[in-house]
Design a protein around this nucleic acid. Sequence first.
DNA 1: GACGCGATAGGACAACTGTCCTAATCTCAC
DNA 2: GTGAGATTAGGACAGTTGTCCTATCGCGTC
Lengths: 193, 193
Amino acid sequence: MPTHSTRDIIVEKADALFYQGGFEATSFADIAAAVGISRGNFYHHFKTKDDILDAVIARRMERTRAMLDAWQDASEGPRERIVCFIRILITNRTSIMAYGCPVGTLCSELAKLDHAAQGRAADIFGLFRDWLTAQFRALGAADRAGALALHLLAWSQGVAVLAAALRDEAFIHAEVAGIEHWLASHPDLSQPT
Amino acid sequence: MPTHSTRDIIVEKADALFYQGGFEATSFADIAAAVGISRGNFYHHFKTKDDILDAVIARRMERTRAMLDAWQDASEGPRERIVCFIRILITNRTSIMAYGCPVGTLCSELAKLDHAAQGRAADIFGLFRDWLTAQFRALGAADRAGALALHLLAWSQGVAVLAAALRDEAFIHAEVAGIEHWLASHPDLSQPT
DNA sequence: GACGCGATAGGACAACTGTCCTAATCTCAC
DNA sequence: GTGAGATTAGGACAGTTGTCCTATCGCGTC
C-alpha cells in the first residue's frame, strides 16, 4: 500500500512550484529536480506539460472540495462556515503575501497565456461560489445569495492581490475584521436559526 | 519633431504585450515583431529585458499620474473624483475581462518570479493609494482615510480578478453599483462641502 | 533461473530564449 | 561631398525549453 505513487508526488511538487513560481516559468527540469527523478522520465507519467497542469487543477479541485466538506461538517451554522472561509486569509497569510491566492493567480496567468485550461481553473472559483451561495441562502439571503457569494469571493481576492503587492500583513488583519463585521451586520441577512 | 521615437514605440508595444501576454511569456522576438524592427537591434535601445520592464513600469507610472491629475482637475469634489476611479472598471471592462488589471496581474507575476522590479510595480498601487487617501481625507475620513483607500483599491482588484476568471460582465456592473452605493452611504463620511 | 513489464535514466532533437557582436545603412553638420 | 555618429539588420552564441526515443534496471510471476 504505497502512501504516494511517483505520479502523485510529481503532481504535488508541480502544484507547489506552479503556485510559487507560476506555470509558465516552472520547467520540467524544475519539477524533476524537486521530485528527484530524471527529466526524460516525465514522458512515462505525463505526455505534455499541459497534462501536468490538468492534474494539478484536478488535485486542487479535490482538495478544495474536501476543505469545503470539512467546513460543512465542523461548523454549526452557515455564519460560522463563512467565517471559516474568511479565515483562510489569516491562516495562509504568509504564503499569500509571498505568492498571492493560488486560484486567482493561476486564473490570471492562464488568461494571459490564452490557455485551454483556464476554464477548468476558474471552476475552482465555481466551487467556492456555489458553496458560499448555499451558506448565504441558508442565512436567508434568497435570490441575493449568489451575488453575496461573488462579492465575498471578490473581496477576499482583492485582499490577496493587495497583500501580496504591498507585503502588508496588518492590511490583511484589518480587512478580515472588516469582512467579519460586514457578515455580522449585513442588513439583508436574518440572524441564524 | 518626431511624435514617437523608436524607443518610445518599443516601450508602448512592450507595455501592451506584457499586459496581454505576461512579462515572462513575452519574448524579445514578440516585441520586435510588434514594433517591426529586427531582434538584434534591441541591444541598442535596451541592454536587457529587465530594462524594458523598468521602462514599461516608468511609463505606467507617468500615465497613472497623468490620469489622476486629470481627475483631480476635471471633477468638482472628492466624491466625484473617487467615482472616476471606480468607473475605470466599466470603461476598461473588455480588457479587464480578458487580461485582468494591468497593475495587479503584473505585481502578481513579478512576485512569483521574485523579480527585482516588483517593488517598483507595487509603487503604482502606491500612487492610487495616496491619491484615494487624499480624496477620503477631503471627505472628512481623517485617520481612516488610508484604510478606506486600501479597502477601495482591494475591492476593485477583487472585481478585476473575478471578472477575468469568470468572464462575467454583469458581475462588474453589479459590483460597481455596490461600490458607488457604499461610497454614497458610508457612515464615516460626511457630506461633501 | 527465465521471462515480462512497468519504471527509470540519459540523452537526442529542433526550436526558442536573452544576449551580444559586426557590418551595413542612414542622417546630418561641416 | 565627406566624415562622424546614430541607427539598423542579420546572425552568432550558449543555454534552456518541451518533447520524444532507447537502453537499462527492478521486481514479481511462471
